[in-house]
Design a protein around this nucleic acid. Structure first.
Lengths: 209, 209, 209, 209
DNA sequence: CGCTAAACGAGACGGTACGTCGAGTCTTGCG
DNA sequence: CGCAAGACTCGACGTACCGTCTCGTTTAGCG
């Protein structure tokens, strides 16, 4: 097969591509996303502006590619998966909040998030470098807990994942403090409803340890 | 008392102030936040550009004041408070998602959210028009449920509120779909943990009705 | 030969250049130099403001180029050269005064003159369109007179030229009236000194040194 | 008669007046005429802008009053009057050129000169601090020479004065160098014409070469 | 090897908005 | 009514990016 129209003309220079990504990355680290103009990227990369526009539709697209290609040091959201959901959740939340306190990351996230609206490619890239990673981490954590019998059967893991990501994201986009993590974990574990099973059961936040 | 330095000089014109707010509001409704330039606001308000700059540091500040002063029709996040948390939560989530689908509101929220980072005044205004309202609605809902004995005693309502707001906000800032609301409500009500009391308890999402 | 670094990039558009010059000229004729803003020039030339700033450092520079390139109808200071200095000088002075009474020209002269202080290029252009022309005219007049034997030998024509130009310029920059031209011509021709030659005596002041 | 309208209301404060003049003078000395804005004058004088506008129609008017009132140290154009016109003229020209080299004075002169066009009051003030002084100096010089019998009778002193002022002014408004002063003096003394009495009389500047 | 076609450097260009400045005027309240 | 304070209009300033364009110049593969 490969009717793939034979590539005619001068092929794209890989050199310029990395030059642009490098320039964008360093500029972003130095002055932030807002101040990183395409003019500046091109200048620093010693590349014609048109060369940037030829391959990337926008500044956000360049930054997204930087993120995907590993030109930007992003926090990684590893989650412990010991099987003890309370401990795991608590540890993971603490860690995530710490990671998110990097101001540059926050900026990047916002920029890509905004651009995601109009550019599905960026949306996919953003998902790849951020949400997917989170989902997998959380998933692993919950799976381990489930295997350990610590989770109620039948719960929708997607919903839980979504909830956790939202909670952490909110701390990013808004500048909320991290709140009371143990209480949050308690709510997640036991719910808020006065279920039939909670009869007489004490709150576990302050459970005797 | 009140040595509050007598106001000297020509007092600020209330007329121009509302003219600016009105102009900004209508422009925002018509063309969106991105296209609403300070030049355009001043022009439409028939006011000198300098008059805008004198009183507002940025476009976002003008829009924030528009929001606070009621010049923009914002969705209101009323919550039913029947005492039945499942029904209330479900209804409220549906309603909130609907409200958030107004594209202009989404844009406004993003714009103000972004500006909140560098301007604490805007942050406060944003909280006032958006989060505070949400908090009160949710609070009312949960209080009613608590009074009806439908909530487990001892839970931290703040945490729950925060969680719900985050979940809804995430749908705003990211463009996530609303997900599986009943499943979400179920998780919230019963938690994810296999508590001693949940033994054998069936998932209630599809409980026999 | 011509190692003249090959011109890189998109070449300057001659079209825009003349559009700007034309716009500046017509604006100047219509509203005067003071009211001729760069904004207005760019607007009338249907050119981006930056295009003006790219090539001309100031409004005066544009006008100077207009003058040099012949976009402005300037008075020409032709001088008769009959060989009769009294008649020639008188005629030329009268004519020059008439020419200078054009208010626009006066304005232009002042503007360029002022800008000459900080911009040597403008100074050169001003000289080219104004002073040089005057010098040549006067020179021709005096040369003819000299050839006709009507001038005392040995006089410094440069000085005389400078003196005449100054006298006329003064009428321009200040708004002096033209004074008593015949008296001026008389002074120029015969000097003010009680020369020895009026009595056949030797030179006047302290001649023998 | 003399209904000399009784002055009603608060009388003009002499204090503010000198404050304004002082402020204008110092600003002018420090940053020049172009940078001396009315705003700056008022601010430095600790006076309301309106107070400036109430009494002076323009910045130039303030500066003109500064000059007249002696707030600005201006060069004085004293002329020697020994009765020897060659020596006197030469000395005076040299001195005048030196004096005019003060850049601030040049600036002031240009500013007032320009404003003279539209404001007769300023024109009169300019004349008073500059031209009149010059005229008197030259006049004195020439009168002494006349009394000493060194001037040809019947010459129009006004014309000569005008010519000299023009020559010096030209060096101010344009940035011409001072030229060949001895040659200029020679031309002034003996004229350029080959008059009957100059027959055979050698020029004295460059004598026979 | 020469031809073709696209990638590239350089930089001009139209456009939009920016935020600032200076000019003059207007509106308060105080003395 | 003078005056301080300062809000206001108006118009221009010069700059910053945006994204497009127009040159000339590589740099590959293909015939």
């Amino acid at each position: 097969m490969s009717p793939a129209t034979a590539p005619r003309g001068r092929p794209r220079s890989a050199e310029r591509r990395v030059a642009v990504l490098r320039a964008a990355s360093s500029l972003f680290q130095e002055v932030g996303a807002a101040q990183t103009s395409i003019d500046a990227i091109a200048a620093r990369a010693r590349v014609a502006k048109q060369t940037v526009y030829r391959w990337w539709p926008s500044k956000a697209a360049v930054l997204a590619e930087c993120a995907v290609e590993g030109y930007l040091t992003l926090p990684s959201f590893h989650a412990p998966a010991t099987g003890d959901p309370r401990a795991d959740l608590t540890a993971w939340l603490e860690e995530s909040y710490d990671a998110l306190e990097t101001p540059r990351f926050l900026e990047l996230f916002r920029a890509l998030n905004e651009a995601s609206g109009s550019d599905p490619v960026i949306a996919a890239q953003l998902d790849r470098v951020f949400a997917r990673q989170l989902r997998q981490a959380i998933r692993g954590m919950l799976d381990a807990a489930f295997d350990a019998g610590a989770l109620r059967p039948g719960i929708d893991l997607d919903v839980v994942t979504q909830l956790l990501i939202a909670h952490v994201s909110a701390a990013v986009t808004q500048r909320a403090d991290r709140g009371d993590i143990p209480a949050l974990v308690a709510v997640l574990l036991h719910g808020i409803g006065a279920g039939p099973r909670s009869r007489g059961a004490p709150m576990d936040t302050e459970e005797p340890r």
